[in-house]
């Protein structure tokens, strides 16, 4: 009987305490969600990213840019980025890690904004040993629309300016990593009878190459030749992005260039 009296008092006290806490929490929750009273958010005034440098014990690959780097069209892997990762894993005796930050449809201005403002991206850039990038295609061409070289050329100047800023920003964040820019190819060789598009794509590649010469970490990897003959064999079903085979060729070329 005495034990049950003790048990009852313990249960009662615990229950009363917790119930009052729960009722308090319940009322508090209603106040917060249903009758909110403004926000106490402040804009963090400074960037709070620790000083980190890439480590030699492992290889961190960061991929930035548009759908080509995201791997659109490749059903099995992460596009050429995945190929590079697998090959490096085989060649080097170190663990290889991948940060895939590329987004379908990104333009140079979006990428510039992305690497200038996003804390996670900036942290990752600082840790990376190798940065892989494709960008610019979406500035000049919109998928599915007719290609008018004159219009595309108008967008080019601005895109190149942004690209220069992107390289500068990457270098200031991480002066050690290799920065690889994968050049554009011409997916429209079939309809490009007089070579007008090919010439324009090469014009862009040339201008980008000029920019990369200003930065000693930067490396321009051409892909134009890889997709010039038998283009269809290396493109996916959207006849725009590479297929597995196409990505494999890009990836292998990057790894060779790095050796």
């Amino acid at each position: 009987m005495r034990s049950s009296r003790l048990l009852w008092s313990v249960i009662l006290i615990v229950a009363l305490l917790t119930t009052s806490i729960f009722i308090y929490g319940f009322v508090n929750a209603i106040q917060t969600v249903v009758y909110p009273d403004g926000s106490n958010l402040t804009t963090p005034d400074e960037e709070r990213i620790e000083d980190i440098a890439p480590s030699d014990d492992d290889i961190v690959i960061l991929s930035l840019g548009d759908s080509l780097t995201e791997g659109t069209g490749d059903r099995s892997e992460n596009g050429y980025v995945g190929v590079v990762k697998n090959l490096l894993e085989k060649n080097e005796e170190k663990p290889v890690f991948l940060h895939t930050f590329a987004v379908d449809g990104y333009t140079t201005s979006q990428l510039l904004d992305f690497i200038s403002t996003q804390n996670g991206t900036r942290t990752s850039i600082k840790q990376a040993n190798l940065i892989l990038m494709t960008i610019g295609g979406n500035d000049m061409f919109s998928p599915g629309e007719e290609i008018i070289i004159e219009t595309s050329r108008e967008y080019m100047t601005n895109a190149l300016e942004n690209l220069d800023k992107i390289f500068a920003e990457l270098q200031s964040l991480n002066p050690e990593a290799d920065i690889i820019y994968v050049g554009l190819y011409n997916p429209f060789t079939e309809i490009d009878k007089d070579g007008e598009i090919s010439l324009f794509v090469q014009e862009w590649n040339n201008e980008v190459f000029k920019i990369t010469t200003k930065y000693k970490q930067a490396l321009f990897i051409p892909t134009f030749d890889l997709f010039y003959k038998n283009t269809k064999n290396y493109l996916s079903s959207d006849v725009y992005h590479p297929n597995e085979e196409g990505y494999k060729r890009i990836g292998e070329r990057i790894v060779k260039a790095l050796q």
Binding site: L98, G120, S124
Partner: peptide, 17 residues
């Protein structure tokens, strides 16, 4: 997978995905 413990990178990766 990521080779990092930095939550910013992990969250950023998630956003990009």
């Amino acid at each position: 997978q990521m080779g990092t413990e930095d939550w910013r990178i992990v969250v950023q990766q998630q956003i990009q995905d």
